[in-house]
Amino acid sequence: MSDQPPPRSLTEAELSARLRGLAARGVAPAPATGAQVRSRAARRRRGRRVLLSAGALGAAALATVASGALGSSPTPPAVPLATSVPHPSPAPVQRVTVDLDAHTLTIEGRRFPISAPQETCPIGETSVTVTAKYPSLTLRPDPITKYADIRQWAVTFTDRSHHQRLLMWALDPAAGLSSLGHNAPAGSIALAPKAGKRVYDAIEPGARVEIKGGQTASAHPDSMCSDRQTITVNR
């Protein structure tokens, strides 16, 4: 065996340069060695694989563009319409009717006889909202008699001047029932003792009270109409 190293394979550029030089001198090219032939064959195979890979990629890109997948976002799935969640209806406002001419109070389908206020000390409202309830309420003393009037099962409202005033109450059993059906209280309405307790228990703060019947302007100052005075309760 020869100790000389095998000849170095020429690159494609070197081979082309030598061929051009031989052609210029009119010399036929020397036959390529086996290593050179194998090298050129390997380069051609690699070139074909590169071309095939580029062609496959180009075909895939064309298919992607044709299918509309490139440059456009996928169609989102259909979202079902949200179903409405039922909400409970608000509780209806409790309604109470007071008829000053018929001397009656109606609540939840039950009717009670009342005594309407004096014409000289009317309630002065046609529609009020119940503000509070008191089992016992002491009004300010009368300026003349100095007598502090105590009202049982009292129900109050707030008037248009933002003053809390007496709306209805129950007669004291000691006072008798002779005033029922007449215009007696000084700016409110009165019920019989048992009826007053039933109405007191049934009526709720926030109840809407419709007051029917003619009411004239107050002929007396509020100091003379005890039920029209502003109520101040120590809490």
Rank of each mutant, 00 (worst) to 15 (best):
T83H: 12
G34A: 15
P5Q: 08
A24D: 05
L52S: 07
A60T: 13
E14S: 06
S84Y: 12
R40D: 04
G26Q: 05
R18E: 02
E12Y: 09
A66F: 11
S16H: 06
Q36D: 03
A61D: 15
A60W: 10
H87R: 09
P76M: 03
T11N: 03
A54R: 10
P88T: 15
A59I: 12
A56I: 14
P77G: 01
V93Y: 09
A63E: 09
P80V: 06
R44A: 06
S89Y: 10
A60S: 09
T64K: 04
V98D: 00
P92Y: 00
V85F: 06
A32T: 14
A28C: 06
A42M: 13
V98C: 00
P74T: 15
A59G: 03
T75I: 09
A23N: 12
R48D: 06
T75M: 07
L57G: 14
A42Y: 05
A66V: 09
P88E: 09
R44M: 07
R25D: 00
P92A: 01
G55Y: 09
P77S: 03
A35L: 14
R49Y: 14
G68D: 02
V79K: 04
A13I: 05
A13T: 07
T64S: 11
R18N: 03
R25A: 07
R43D: 01
G68M: 02
A56T: 14
S73C: 07
A82H: 08
P86S: 03
R20S: 11
S67Q: 15
R8K: 12
R48L: 15
S16W: 15
G71Q: 02
L81H: 05
R46E: 07
P80M: 06
R48V: 15
P77F: 09
H87D: 11
L15S: 00
L22I: 09
V79R: 09
S84T: 11
A63L: 13
A82Y: 10
G68V: 02
A60R: 08
A17W: 06
L52G: 07
